[in-house]
């Protein structure tokens, strides 16, 4: 994975673990200070994540704070549901992803959604 990709994952992990919106400085401090990461780099990464829609930017007390738009569990559930359920239009086979074994049918998708929701609620 590229260096920026690694950093994106680590920044997301900090936001998820914090459980509250963080400023760029707070994220910067929480990442390993020993590796000499520039403040502006962290800002760039947060900006990229915001553009991709996985992070929101909120203004509070004259400072921008960043938060993940979904919890880790919600995002995992959303990804799995999208991966495992049938193609959105159903008419044609979806060519976007290839599964090791067949996808989940319409009935299965409903059951799966319920199971994922229950699992997310368990935490």
């Amino acid at each position: 994975m590229s260096g920026l990709g690694d950093l994106e994952r680590e920044v997301m992990a900090q936001l998820w673990d914090a459980g509250e919106p963080l400023t760029v400085r707070q994220v910067h401090e929480r990442l390993d200070p020993a590796r000499g990461l520039a403040y502006t780099t962290v800002m760039t990464v947060l900006d990229r994540l915001a553009k991709k829609g996985v992070v929101t930017q909120q203004k509070a007390d004259r400072a921008y704070r960043y938060a993940a738009t979904q919890t880790r569990e919600e995002m995992t559930a959303a990804l799995m549901f999208d991966a495992l359920s049938a193609a959105p239009d159903g008419a044609a086979r979806d060519a976007a992803l290839a599964h090791f074994v067949g996808r989940v049918g319409p009935d299965g998708a409903a059951a799966l959604a319920a199971a994922l929701k229950a699992a997310a609620g368990d935490r």
Binding site: R9, V54, A78, L79, D82, L97
Partner: peptide, 16 residues
Amino acid sequence: RSRVRRARHRLLADLL
């Protein structure tokens, strides 16, 4: 459509 869906999957899978 495939590329859009794949890009989203790639992003989320990398983050998670």
